[in-house]
């Protein structure tokens, strides 16, 4: 059973979002997503300064077996990317909700946070996928 931390919000496309006190958010892919992909060998994050809109393809994670797009869970400006992933993409497998974060976003519209899935709702979508 995959980990789904309570304090995060989720997109149906398997990204997670963590809201910081300053109103900026961290974005990564869920434990379920990294487990489905298998060993990651390459992460292509968006670029700092990119303006992205909810649902945009804004990066790629590649495992040995397959490439998978990552989608913007919220609109905003990319203000940082996790540079450790360039040499250590396996951090996403090892710690998807911590050291494996992919980029940081300054949200354009904080109301979008409320439209994301809660941990319980995300767990339900995963169960539905398995049926």
């Amino acid at each position: 059973m995959s980990q789904i931390p309570e304090e995060l919000r989720y997109a149906t496309s398997h990204e997670w979002v963590r809201m910081e006190d300053d109103g900026n958010v961290y974005v990564g892919i869920s434990d379920h997503a990294q487990d489905s992909l298998g060993d990651l060998v390459f992460v292509e994050p968006p670029e700092v300064g990119d303006e992205i809109s909810t649902g945009d393809e804004c990066g790629v994670v590649e495992s040995v077996k397959a490439a998978s797009d990552i989608y913007a869970p919220m609109s905003g400006e990319v203000i940082a990317v996790n540079e450790n992933l360039e040499d250590s993409p396996e951090l996403v497998n090892q710690d998807p909700y911590g050291d494996g974060w992919i980029y940081q976003l300054k949200p354009a519209n904080k109301a979008e946070w409320d439209e994301l899935l809660s941990a319980d709702d995300y767990a339900t979508t995963l169960e539905d996928d398995e049926d």
Binding site: G38, D39, V41, S63, V64, K65
Partner: peptide, 11 residues
């Protein structure tokens, strides 16, 4: 079986 946990380790 596509892998048993880690394709890289198996390789």
């Amino acid at each position: 079986p596509i892998h048993y946990g880690s394709q890289l380790d198996e390789h």
